[in-house]
Each structure stands twice: as structure tokens, then as C-alpha cells.
Design a protein around this nucleic acid. Sequence first.
DNA 1: TCTATTTGATATACTTCATAACGATTATTG
DNA 2: CAATAATCGTTATGAAGTATATCAAATAGA
Lengths: 168, 168
Amino acid sequence: MTVSKTTVQDQAKQAAPVGFDEEGGALQLGELSELLGYSLKRAQLKVFEDFLRCMAPLQLTPAQFSVLLLLDKNPGRNQTEIANTLGILRPNFVSLLDALESRDLLTRMRSPSDRRSHVLMLTDKGRATLIRAKKLVATRHEARLIEVLGPAEHKALLGMMAKIAREL
Amino acid sequence: MTVSKTTVQDQAKQAAPVGFDEEGGALQLGELSELLGYSLKRAQLKVFEDFLRCMAPLQLTPAQFSVLLLLDKNPGRNQTEIANTLGILRPNFVSLLDALESRDLLTRMRSPSDRRSHVLMLTDKGRATLIRAKKLVATRHEARLIEVLGPAEHKALLGMMAKIAREL
DNA sequence: TCTATTTGATATACTTCATAACGATTATTG
DNA sequence: CAATAATCGTTATGAAGTATATCAAATAGA
């Protein structure tokens, strides 16, 4: 779909009185606004953008945050388990972990029971960072979303997204 | 976020009776399921996946379909206008158009009034393809989404997505 | 034991997204 | 009017994200 950040700043030419074609006015979105995938993609990009902005002080991407979150709830798992749960392919998970480990947010430890696998664990710094990150998400990011949608719709939205991810 | 298609086929080990940790069971998603961005991204990927599947007979990607749709409603616009409206950067729009033009779905015509710009227009084949594409989207894709969500929630979802894209 | 599988890792490729710069053309402006 | 600036489509290029094949080491299974 390719929806960039630089979005619809096109109507700089000024908004025409709706129902305008032939030269000059803003374009007609047409059935595009009824296409769920289209809106979904644009909304998703906006949400990630906002996440990055809110998380700027900690320099964590959504993917990195999700790893910390999952590790905190599931200590002692190996890379394959965490990656699979997040839908990340093992090869691509390596560099993601490299980055977090180099920042001392987590450690890879050879498992004593199966020396092929790495047991992943948050460091103290990782846990502390996660706590701060959760606060930023709650007080800035999700707060903003709730502000825009209202609490009821925000919750309903969560349910719908989960349903699509699960049942489609 | 990095959410691949190969998703959560991890619980192959069999589902533990919920509220299980320490080895063996499925992982605890934890606050991840409350993270709107996370669910949004996974849902978006699913929706695009379904779109591609439904559109397979016509071999149109979501981005290509959106271009045809927009061109049909806004004939005679140039590349920059269409690209900006879709949030696509001009350089990246070139190869997208190349693909559609080489399939004879649209034409680039030098504008007589401004010989820098290309006026974009659907060909007859492009219009015919668009009609078929719209039918596929309506009868397969959106129909499936409505089946999963129900008509009321589907509509509510459209509204929420538009709101986020617009106001966040 | 011999073979097959799994784990983390590397290499690699393809797609998407972003920026800089160019020639041609048009607009501005001194 | 001439000189400069801006715009259009395009090319080149780079950074991510995503995908597959393959490897050595370790384990599991025959």
C-alpha cells in the first residue's frame, strides 16, 4: 500500500467545497475510504509514528518493546520461542537481540539443559527500562489514543484487532 | 514490529490450560494484547494477506488497486497529485506506474498545458479490470471481514481507522 | 552408532520506504 | 527580457523489514 509519513498535505491548494472535480481541488478519495485495508494501514503507520515519538526518550522501537515485554512475562525462554510468538523469523531476530544485548537490556545465556539454545533474560537495566517504557506508553501513547477514540471505542478497537488477527 | 506471515503456529506444543508459565506451555502475551499498535499491525498484515488472496485472479496489490481506484475517480491528474494523495513518494511511484502501464491498465500522457507533467488515465482495459477488482473486493474480501466482525463493527472500525489516520 | 532434527547464526535477496540529484520545463523576479 | 528559482518525472542509492537457504554445534531418535 505504501503510505508514507508525508501524507495528504496536498490540499495545500485549499479545500474545495466538496464535490469538486476537474482541476484545482482536492482529489476524490472515492471508495478508497471504504477500503478497510487502506484505512487500517494508514492508521497503523500513524500509531507506530506516535509510539516512536512517545518512546523517544528511551529509544525503543515497537518491536524492541514487544521483546522486552514478552521476556519479562516469560523469562528463561529461548530465541526461537520468543521470535515465533512475535511472528519474527529466527534469522531476523538475531540482530534485534544483538542491539538489545549490546545496550545491556537483556542477556543470552547458554542453556545448561540444551546447549544449543540461548536462554533469554532481562537484565536489571532491562527491567528498569521496561518499567519506564510502560509508563511512557501508558501516559503518552495509549493516553493519546484514548483521547482520540474515547475509552469505549479504544477498548472495542482492541477487541476487533485481536479478532481479525485471530480469525481472519 | 516485524510481524511475519508465519504467525503463532508456536502453540503446536499444545495449549496449556491458561495461566501457565515455567516451561512447556504457550507463552504469556501479557500486556502485549493491550498494546493497540501490536494488534493493529498484526491485523493489518492479515487483512492485506486476505486482500492478496482474494485479488489473486487479477494480480493486483493493495497499492495498485488504490491507484486504479483513485485514477478512476480523478482522471487527468498528474503523478505527483496521485502519489501525494496516496502517501507515496514520487520516486517510488514511478516503478509502480511502470508496472501498471506495462500491463496496459493506464497511460501516461504528456500534458499539453505543462509539458513537465504526465496526465494519468485509465485505459479501457484498466477500467474493465477495476470493475472486476471491485467485485472481488466486495464479494470476497470485505465480505469476509464483515463475516468476522459483523456489519456494525465493520462500519465502526472503518470510522475509527479514519479518525486515527486523520486526528492522531 | 548413524542419521535426522533443532538451535542460533550467517549470507543473501526482495520489497518497501526515504533522500539526493539530474534534465527538462515552467514560474518568478530583478 | 535575462537570470534565477521552483516543479515534474526520473534515476540512483541507501536503510529497514522480511524471506529463504545453509552452516556448525548440539541433541534426539533410529
